[in-house]
Write a protein that binds this DNA or RNA. Structure first.
Lengths: 187, 187
DNA sequence: GTTTTAACGTGACAAACATCACTATTATAA
DNA sequence: TTATAATAGTGATGTTTGTCACGTTAAAAC
């Protein structure tokens, strides 16, 4: 269990065993059941999460009650409503389990403490943030350059595993297309 | 000139005057004319840029020769093809001047050197990266939740200044809508 | 100052996509 | 096990948006 997070960090920064143990003290393990919320739209966001196992969706619910999936979070991914997390404001999005999920939680205080005490951890977070930014920009690019069917095929190619774990309704909501239109792509 | 970058950094991290002077040594000032390229699609990306004055566009050119604007960079913004910059690969996008522009350039080596030698600078870059990530996610959200006209009005509201400096053709390309459709919104 | 190029608006038509309605199937819960 | 809810496919229809074509104005280049 702990190995997952340990290995994940080691891939990016070289920490001594003592440092790693110290780092892990600042996380707490938690288990959530399918459909449970880690973050509720409108409430405070105390933690960001490292997904050990399971699957999460980061969802924005609009005024008409439609849900829009900003992101899926699978094993080894970091997720939160980062805007609310960093600025200590109310969540604009919900984070909810698609499957039973285990996460390591990191409070903002501990995030800041680790960053301040261990420059290597700040470096780790910077790498992660840069990668997240680049991934987001690629997603923007796919909205600019591709129509719904092409985005569907790109996703199919990039994350084939996702299609066995996520309903087409959710995929449609991630791709920004209606359930019906997406359904017609497969046929 | 130098004041701009100095003040920009000071807003986020507290550096001594000596530290600040040291930091600034790693940047180099450059001036570009309207339509000049800072980055050319397909070439190496040696620098990221802090915009002192002027206006840039980050553009992806697709196979059909259509241009898609991933981002505008105005005064006080950081820009590059960050994916290519960080991974030392060929640029997928071009960075080009919309107006005469002055920038401070930072090579990847100097970026890494500053990050390694001054934890405060790594902290600075982390803050910037987090903000960039959040901004990108908001843009994704606007693609998911809004149609072209709504995105147009959101942009008008968020960056009213942009409309005096950028042609409607470019705005359309940023919003992911055709020039003609955007033209019909104003009337 | 004239030529050339880019920018803008607009009509006509086609393509992409959303919405509504209905049915069938599969999970989930009682 | 049955009842209930979630998921998925599909036809019919309307809206949104893209594309092509044209004319006009304004700016840039020569």
């Amino acid at each position: 269990m702990e190995e997952k997070l340990r290995d994940h960090i080691k891939k990016i920064v070289l920490l001594t065993d003592d440092e790693l143990s110290y780092v892990l003290l600042h996380f707490s393990l938690a288990a959530y059941k399918k459909n449970e919320f880690l973050i509720q739209q409108g409430e405070n966001v105390d933690n960001c999460y490292f997904v050990v196992s399971g699957l999460l969706k980061l969802v924005y619910n609009d005024k008409e009650g439609k849900q829009h999936i900003v992101s899926f979070a699978m094993e080894d991914w970091w997720e939160s409503d980062f805007s609310a997390y960093f600025t200590q404001s109310k969540a604009k999005m919900s984070l909810q389990c698609i499957e039973d999920t285990m996460v390591y939680s990191l409070s903002l205080k501990n995030y800041q403490k680790l960053s301040a005490k261990l420059p290597k951890m700040e470096h780790f977070f910077l790498q992660k943030s840069n990668l997240g930014f680049i991934a987001s920009q690629n997603r923007i690019l796919s909205f600019l350059t591709s129509n719904a069917k092409e985005r569907y095929e790109q996703l199919l190619k990039q994350y084939p595993l996702l299609f066995q774990r996520v309903s087409k309704t959710l995929l449609a909501s991630y791709l920004g297309v209606s359930r019906e239109t997406l359904s017609r792509f497969s046929s």
